[in-house]
Design a protein around this nucleic acid. Structure first.
Lengths: 187, 187
DNA sequence: GTAATTATTTGATCCAGGTCAAATTTTAAC
DNA sequence: GTTAAAATTTGACCTGGATCAAATAATTAC
């Protein structure tokens, strides 16, 4: 639980009351490697704060899995639109490594937003961080060669990139695995 | 001012007190066509709620302007990272149409966040909307033909796309203007 | 440990969209 | 209006990365 608190503390100061409330609604979950965390057919009712391991979000295009993002230690993972609207979304979530996480339901989160203004602030600020990453990614997807895209990926996922299978990286970058493989071999 | 209030009301209910405070810190500004609203060398100290006209954010790559987004009526426009961190960012903002807007300073906004929890909520929720657009855009930039990208643009900027010069659309999409021109002529 | 499955690499070929160049149309300035 | 400047279109050509196919390596299951 300390890890979760430490994360929140990067954005807001946590009162004891809020700590207690958070502890009450965060439940530990485990996913084994390859396990489907969320099926796109279903609504994403919970958000996962990852303590250990890695989850991935992907969608299907022409029957193929297109990876959209990876979430590792000390990050939240959910199907954003689905979690926000509480309607089924387009994303599948799966565990590409065995994972331990703390889960919070959308219901409980909304209740916290209603009772703790600092939770609103936390959400606004942490969202801002992710927002910046999305904008950088958009920039890196346009007018850049496959090599530049890969370089940007290595930078963004510095420290975890080696834990991600090549095929998933390729679809994340919007290039084929063949191209990425050649790129790594430097040709 | 009514237009601004109506916009806020889509996310939160505005108390009279908050209305008064907002009215006190929002100042009308006008930009003539082609005017530089923000130089990337400077910090973005104000955010603009557009009443009429269109602003655009772009950055320079190899000396060329790469358009990153357009903001039109009833939308906020600023250099996100710069406005958030109060440090110079990479974006230039300019008016691609004569524009009337209401400006709020980062300073005043922070003060509102401190005193009105509902402002935090507004920010969180409205940010969520933009967040969704960014993710869709990322999806549309990968594994899609130039034609598909353009179709997505027409959908995203439905109702305003005809007001945007072709060259800016091209750099927004990450394709050359020649390709976009041929695309429109349907070849 | 061995077989089966899945991931990665390598090779050959092809095309969407880039680049460079120039003509034409539109817009702005005076 | 006339001229200049900017935006858009058109043409010819070329290349990065896609596609298709098959070999090799690495994991996983039993």
């Amino acid at each position: 639980m300390d890890t979760v608190f430490a994360h929140f503390s990067r954005y807001i100061s946590l009162s004891d009351t809020l700590k207690t409330e958070l502890a009450a609604v965060l439940t530990p979950v485990h996913f084994s490697k390859g396990e489907l965390v969320l099926d796109a057919e279903r609504t994403c009712t919970r958000s996962y704060f990852i303590l250990q391991g890695m989850l991935r979000a992907y969608f299907l295009k022409d029957g193929k899995e297109i990876t959209d993002f990876f979430s590792a230690e000390e990050e939240w993972c959910n199907s954003p639109k689905s979690f926000y609207t509480q309607q089924p979304g387009e994303y599948y979530l799966d565990a590409i490594e065995p994972a331990d996480a703390m889960a919070i339901s959308a219901r409980d989160l909304v209740s916290l937003f209603d009772r703790f203004p600092e939770m609103e602030r936390y959400a606004r600020l942490s969202m801002g961080t992710v927002f910046g990453h999305l904008m950088e990614r958009i920039a890196s997807l346009r007018f850049t060669s496959a090599k530049e895209k890969y370089a940007h990926f290595l930078q963004t996922y510095e420290g975890i990139h080696h834990r991600i299978p090549l095929g998933m990286v390729a679809s994340y970058l919007g290039i084929t695995q063949e191209t990425l493989s050649r790129l790594r071999a430097d040709r």
